[in-house]
Simulated scan of single mutants.
Amino acid sequence: MRILIWHVHGSWTTAFVQGPHTYAVPVTPGRGPDGLGRARTFDWPASVIELPPERLRDADIDLVVLQRPHEHALVEQWLGRRPPMVYLEHNAPGGDVPGTRHPVADLPGDVPLVHVTHFNRLMWDAGSARTAVIEHGIADPGPLWTGELPHAAVVVNEPIRRGRTTGTDLLPVFAGAAPLDVFGMRTDGLAGHLGLPPARCRTRELVQRDLHREMARRRLYLHPVRWTSLGLSLLEAMHLGMPVVALATTEVAEAVPPGAGAVSNRIDVLTDAVRDFVADPLYARSAGAAARAAALARYGLTRFLDDWERLLKEVTR
């Protein structure tokens, strides 16, 4: 099968393209948002091919995975027809939650809506659209945790712009419990923005394989996000064998079982957990092993690809 999918979410797509199909990703001059082409910081197989919009009409696309509302119009514009489509929603709703209506509810035709968490399906208003949940799958980076640095790793993109959504305002509180190493896109200036000494909040942007190695050197993973879908960085940290400390929001309480870390909406409980993991490497190792076992059982790549294969066959039948 030849599947058209835009490069929107690098981590999620890295898992999706491990399947048995050919994946066409649009590429445009300048590699803008509608034509990023192949990822440069993730490892994608040769089955992911770049195609400019003018070549898509002759590309024999069998199915389209939509991820943003305007892509539906691009399909007709670039392909000149409507192949079978599914709409993948990565995010929890914003705005008037839980009354936010999903764009797929107003699309013509029967376009199934696929959520990545049960929380997201519960909170979005999809009207009469068919909905399904295919939980995340992770290409296992391996049990890389060493915890040699008594720091907390945080992964967040655009923390200054996204502010309270990603819990950026909470970082000074956690920095009082342990040094924070913040990884992600557009993290420059974060320490100054928060009024923290640079030594208490270091920021870096890395390719995925290097990111995983650097995360695994930290004693624990901190997930201070208030409102988002289930962060893939959290699941990746669990695969690495890291103990996790996270707010009990959205799907986190489902993903992190007892013994794999600390999940709470009490900041004092979370900061105490950070201190405990930093002070006790053996405790951190034990919780990290539990986190990895839970992540492999629920968010393994094979289950993820099998779930998608069943859905794709149903849609193209």
Rank of each mutant, 00 (worst) to 15 (best):
V25R: 09
R68K: 15
G300E: 03
R161H: 05
A129G: 01
V65R: 02
W308A: 04
G30S: 12
R81L: 02
F174E: 01
P93G: 06
R204A: 15
P243N: 02
T28F: 01
R57K: 14
N265P: 04
K313E: 12
A289W: 07
H7P: 07
L149P: 00
V263G: 04
L206Y: 02
G37Y: 03
Y87N: 00
G32R: 15
A24L: 15
H239F: 15
L230S: 01
R209G: 00
T250C: 12
L234F: 09
R130S: 12
T165K: 10
V278M: 06
P103H: 11
T28M: 05
R303N: 01
A246L: 13
P257K: 03
R310I: 15
W6R: 15
P198R: 12
V173H: 14
L170P: 08
Y283K: 15
H102Q: 05
P53L: 00
Y87V: 07
R121V: 02
D181S: 07
L4R: 13
I61A: 03
S11D: 06
T166E: 14
G137H: 08
A199L: 07
D272T: 14
L206I: 12
S286H: 11
R82M: 09
V64S: 02
L282I: 04
V315Q: 06
F119T: 13
R161L: 05
A291W: 14
L240T: 08
D125M: 02
R275D: 10
L170Y: 10
I3R: 13
V104D: 01
R186Q: 13
L296S: 00
M185E: 06
E148S: 12
Y23V: 05
A15P: 03
L107G: 04
E314V: 06
R218E: 02
A129L: 02
A132Y: 09
V263A: 09
R209T: 11
Q77K: 15
F119H: 12
V114L: 11
E71Q: 15
G231W: 03
R298S: 05
Y221Q: 04
H70P: 01
A24H: 06
R57W: 00
H115C: 09
P98M: 07
M85Q: 13
H72S: 08
P20Q: 08
P52M: 01
S229R: 04
M123R: 12
V256L: 04
V75N: 10
T41D: 13
A279I: 11
I3Y: 10
